[in-house]
Design a protein around this nucleic acid. Sequence first.
DNA 1: AATCGGACCAACCGCCCCCAT
DNA 2: AATGGGGGCGGTTGGTCCGAT
Length: 287
Amino acid sequence: MPLFCWHLILLYISFLSSRIFTKMGRPPCCDKVGIKKGPWTPEEDIILVSYIQQHGPGNWRAVPTNTGLMRCSKSCRLRWTNYLRPGIKRGSFTPHEQGMIIHLQALLGNKWAVIATYLPHRTDNDIKNYWNTHLKKKKLKKIQSGLQPQMPSHPTTSYHHMASSENSSVYASSAENISRLLQGWMRSSPSNADFGKTVPSHESQWQKIEEGMANGHDLERMLVFEHQSSNAAVACDKLSCYSSQKGSDSSVCKIDNGNPPLSFLEKWLLDESATQVEGAMELPPIF
DNA sequence: AATCGGACCAACCGCCCCCAT
DNA sequence: AATGGGGGCGGTTGGTCCGAT
């Protein structure tokens, strides 16, 4: 068979495969051939962490090629954001965190990424897993037992016995050890240096919020943006500011590395009347 | 001791959004 | 303005652990 016939056949095959891909939707983010799947090894973690130490997170597409990791770029990003990233709190959820998840889920639905922004040391995956395994069942049980799916009168007390019975030992893993290695990097990194910096005045914050909302941005989106910019403190302050301008509690969101900067949220999330929080806060509708 | 079933959670999959071109 | 690609997100899966039988 002449060589050009083979070329024609190959061209036709590539044409067909492109048609198939078009029908099936977008091709996968990376070539499946030779891509390793499954649990990450400590060696892979070290390679990924040391690469990110040098280059910073981002441009995930380049990570596998530059590191030689036989992993999909998405897998690298996921491993970093959910596991290796410094500052991730692991182990059992505190009653306060449980209360926040319950209330925020009721308010926002399954917007785990948004909910995670209010729990700065927890990942969306962790929160999602926790909801699916612990909290969802309770909700279903309540519904099935014919009771109104209302919040406990006070989450702090309601979940006390459950939390105390849980093992509160701190999660210790190779990943955490790797994360500890990054402490030095955290301190020197400009993006992380924002964590704990002085927060602008309420007046200027309010001005920014007003400007943003005038430009068609809703408060939630702005807050999420702040959180995603590694600046949970500023976002929290904005929410606090927003609330105080709206006439509710004017408590200041204190920035303290030792304690979560959530004094205002704690108050309204754990407040007994938090079920009416939507009206009280006049939060914009979330779609 | 073996088996089974539920709980837990890390990781994958596929869709969607946003931004660069 | 249209389009393609990268990254983010939510849903789901599959492996492991552990207690009950």
